[in-house]
Design a protein around this nucleic acid. Sequence first.
DNA 1: GTCTATATTATGATAGAC
DNA 2: GTCTATCATAATATAGAC
Lengths: 202, 202
Amino acid sequence: MESAGQPVANGELRVVQHSAARTRVLDAALALFAERGVSGTSLQMIADAVGITKAAVYHQFRTKEQIVLAVTERELGRLGPALEEAEAHGDGSQARDALLVHVIDMAVRDRRLVRTLQFDPVVVRLLAEHEPFQRFMDRLYRVLLREGEDGALEGAMLSGAISSGVMHPLVGDIDDDTLRTKLTNMTRRLLGLPVKPVAGTG
Amino acid sequence: MESAGQPVANGELRVVQHSAARTRVLDAALALFAERGVSGTSLQMIADAVGITKAAVYHQFRTKEQIVLAVTERELGRLGPALEEAEAHGDGSQARDALLVHVIDMAVRDRRLVRTLQFDPVVVRLLAEHEPFQRFMDRLYRVLLREGEDGALEGAMLSGAISSGVMHPLVGDIDDDTLRTKLTNMTRRLLGLPVKPVAGTG
DNA sequence: GTCTATATTATGATAGAC
DNA sequence: GTCTATCATAATATAGAC
């Protein structure tokens, strides 16, 4: 299992089952990254949050960048199954819609990680530099973006609207269920789709 | 002119005319903040970008936080006149619309600063902690947000859609004029407003 | 898996000369 | 307004014991 310590493989996003110790580090790191940004978070802070020393953290991850990489891969990877399902259903509007609901669901449930994954400069650079991330994002956009000249802009605005819709100070006191419903409706409005109740998975 | 080195005054956002040397520092800092984030930018990097030493930077600003403060105040302050004009025209939809056009215009023209002002953790903290910023944002939202229970969410999504619409990798190759027009149209669609041509200022 | 201890470099910040 | 020189601290990272 030494591959878990390596950079992201050249192929797909790996789904790694981390050890309990590694998981504790990643959880603490993610929380700190969301609050203070990746560059604003030191290994000392992560170690303190876990309740261990820096050296123990370095035993789990060779560099800070490896931690960022692992966090990003783990969280982004959670969209993998939904993406594969959508791809299996062809490129119709139904597949796109189902994936969109899933993305909104994940964004609402884990609001704090949105800022890190979408906007942190360090993560953005990682996503741009590592091929597996690029490929994964390409696949995501291929399903989510609509055909036509405005597809890219639409997708960009959509992703920002959802992100900001879950993390903006203005929406801090809206409960998850309400937020999910309203986000979905407004997303449909932005896309010019008919507004309908949120579909269940069954 | 010693007030320029002080924290933001308790009253309004100050409009400070910085010296040439200070302006060079602020310009370099803003560019670096946009690229690497505030925490990822050191005073050494800023000094190198300007072509001076750290000590010379410290002659202009007492701390790094003062630089962040000055950059934020300067850029946010550019919206001041448009905001005041909108407030003078009452709280009708016409005033909101005019301000919205202005905000989009500024976002498109200076795409790189959007990430810093809207999403950088350090700037977000500053905005939340300093009263003048809070007051300014309150005024902005009072004009931009619509009445009703969904006003806050609408505003949050709107701000994210515009931000992401100008800074997302997907839109990097769209020219300013095209982007401004399409952003305005999609913004109207999100708000459920009739889509019309962008109005001039005269 | 965790610790103590340490090396190295970078960081924010200051003093004082020109 | 800028420089050289310096300081104290914090950063990333490693070695080796338990």
